[in-house]
Amino acid sequence: MNTYVIQRLLLILPTMFGVTVVLFMAVRFLPGDAVDQMLGDFGAASPELRRQLEERYSLNNSIPQQYVDWMGELVTGDLGTSITSGRSVSSELQRRLPATFQLGLLAMAFSLMISLPIGIVSAVKQNTPIDYAARSLAIMLLSVPSFWLGLLAITYGFAWFGWTPPLRYEQIWEDPIANLQILWVPALILGGLLSGTTMRIMRSTMLEVLREDYIRTARAKGLGARLVVMRHGLRNAILPVITVIGLQVPVVVGGTVLLERIFSIPGMGSYLLTSLSQRDYPVVQAIVLISASFIILTNLLVDLSYSVIDPRIRYR
């Protein structure tokens, strides 16, 4: 088991390497670069100016050289400097990362609080009105676009409740109440979207598990219904659920991009969209790399949890 854990940890290295290569190449394949944008701003495209700018941002080096430089900077913890603003990416992210992280975590928490209990009850009470209501709810949650709900919350939230997203974003350590006032609506919208998937998977795997022989045995030996479901059912049904929760991290990242834009939250997602359109390579690379690392980490946790939760799956 321990060798598996060590092996799995070591395997992060090729994955990270693959991610940096793919990311780096993808950014270079984007048509146009930041210098084009700047030259556009100056209204002139003199070759001399272009050469100077390219030299300034090391865009004239060969691509492998640029990659090596970037990796060298990363190893020392330097995320690079924004071409457009001239500020270091890490200083900018210090304000933006917490906002996105908070939005994502809050959404996940909302999602699990909604989905797990409803999914389990729905499976246990299969084909009863409770089950039908729960399934319809899950499907509705899955079907409604989060960005549409966001738009409606802003449009009708003001008209009906006089609620409007505060104009100024406050960090949680500056003003926790104002911070949560901004974040709870987008987090609830995103959490609702996520909970639909989790609820469905929870229900369907729980149904499968409840038909297994060992559940019948557990019932036959007189174990209470609650214990059968929680101890024997949940433990066996949770594996696909954990996979799905792990798979949802990219959905969360994508969702934060959309909701940050709609609710004007100064997080990573909105920063990425702006930087992408300005071809601000260092910023784009840094943000995608951070999201990717985070996803790699959760994938690792999902993989490791398999063997802990289901000993039938043995890694050698």
Binding site: L11, P14, T15, G18, V19, V22, L23, A26, F29, L30, P31, L247, V249, P250, V251, V253, G254, V257, L258, L272, L273, L276, V288, S291, A292, S293, I295, I296, N299
Partner: peptide, 26 residues
């Protein structure tokens, strides 16, 4: 399995929406 899973790891480490936005831009 190992090779395939690592390739998929790389592939899936990019957040979906961001990834498509990239592909469309290119």
């Amino acid at each position: 399995d190992t090779v395939f899973q690592r390739l998929i790891d790389v592939w899936m480490s990019f957040p979906g929406l961001i990834f498509i936005v990239f592909v469309v831009a290119i």
